[in-house]
């Protein structure tokens, strides 16, 4: 039994999602190989070789793979699939994009977003926005799986796997990368942060998010948002926490001016400690909060920042 894990990275940095996916695979048992597919990604491969439990790193370094286009990445993974019992990727937007393409090409049903490994063929995954947890068993010879990384811990960097370079890849010739606009931030990434402070429609506008940023800087926190705040244009889409945005499980989650719709809760209710600040005592967010503060956020936030 050998698992192929497709690493999450941006060609210069290996993302912690990869470390966490290795933790999930360790619970399935067997050997672990990591594929680093990208352009100019040698340093990522060297980093991946340190992940505890990984015995081999395969590097596919080619311009065609620079931006993770599914049309070029999926065939590469499919070509490697023969040697593996499990093919795994973190359930990031990259993993969600190319993995079902791999699964269909292999004629396998994918198991998305696992949160627990029961055995090498049986997994738990949330359905219905996390209002139910399904235990599913795959009878396929090959398992194709994406991992909800918020549910796993990162493995240490104490290993030293061998690194093997793969031969050139082919261009499917049906898609091209045009551009990307990535949000620049000095703060930790949402899915990697130990503390997350999120704002909702109650923030009223984008400028008011500076009230959250001041606190975030003091706590070393990432800043998130509800869908309503993103839709209203207060903040960019990559800040959305929820069923259809990012799933986070930090030690501390602070929800400010967020009502607590099912879809938002789906993205944060596994946080260790939840704080809610809302002026409406009936807001559903208080039902999941460990500490609720009924207050006007425009008074509570400046006070909180000063006293931290």
């Amino acid at each position: 039994m050998i698992t192929l894990l497709v690493a999450e990275h941006d060609n210069s940095e290996l993302k912690l999602d990869t470390h966490k996916a290795v933790d999930a695979i360790t619970k399935m048992g067997g050997d672990i190989h990591v594929l680093v597919a990208g352009a100019g990604c040698q340093s990522v491969a060297e980093h991946a070789a340190k992940l505890q439990g990984v015995s081999k790193v395969l590097v596919a370094d080619h311009d065609l793979l620079a931006h993770g286009l599914a049309e070029n990445l999926a065939p590469l993974v499919v070509d490697l699939a023969d040697d593996y019992s499990h093919i795994v990727a973190p359930a990031t937007t990259t993993g969600k994009n190319f993995m079902p393409r791999v699964a269909a090409a292999l004629d396998v049903e994918q198991i998305s977003d696992i949160i627990e490994v029961v055995s090498s063929d049986t997994f738990k995954r949330p359905i219905y926005a996390g209002n139910a947890i399904a235990t599913v068993q795959s009878e396929y010879a090959k398992k194709v799986i994406t991992v909800r990384t918020a549910a796993f811990d990162k493995v240490s960097e104490t290993g030293s796997a061998e690194i093997v370079s793969l031969e050139a890849v082919a261009d499917a010739g049906i898609s091209n990368f045009v551009k990307q606009e990535l949000t620049e931030s000095e703060r930790p990434e949402l899915t990697a942060a130990g503390v997350v402070i999120s704002g909702g429609r109650g923030m009223q506008n984008g400028d008011n998010f500076t009230l959250l940023e001041g606190i975030a800087d003091k706590l070393g926190a990432a800043v998130g948002a509800s869908r309503a705040a993103v839709d209203a244009g207060f903040v960019p889409n990559d800040m959305q926490v929820g069923q259809t945005g990012k799933i986070v499980a930090p030690d501390l989650y602070i929800a400010v001016g967020i009502s607590g719709a099912i879809q938002h809760l789906a993205g944060m209710k596994d946080s260790k400690v939840i704080v809610a600040i809302n002026k409406d005592p009936e807001a559903p967010i208080f039902q999941v909060a460990d500490y609720g503060l009924e207050a006007d956020l425009f008074e509570a936030l400046p006070e909180l920042e000063t006293k931290l």
């Binding site: 399904a134 599913v136 068993q137 009878e139 209710k269 500490y291 006293k307």
Partner: peptide, 30 residues
């Protein structure tokens, strides 16, 4: 399908929390 649905459970529920009266009390608890 070759995926068997073995079981569907409720997610673990969060213990009910408390309401705090002030920012000071919130910080003290945290």
């Amino acid at each position: 399908s070759k995926i068997n649905l073995l079981k569907v459970e409720e997610p673990s529920q969060r213990e009910g929390g408390v309401m705090v009266e002030s920012v000071d009390e919130l910080l003290e608890k945290l």
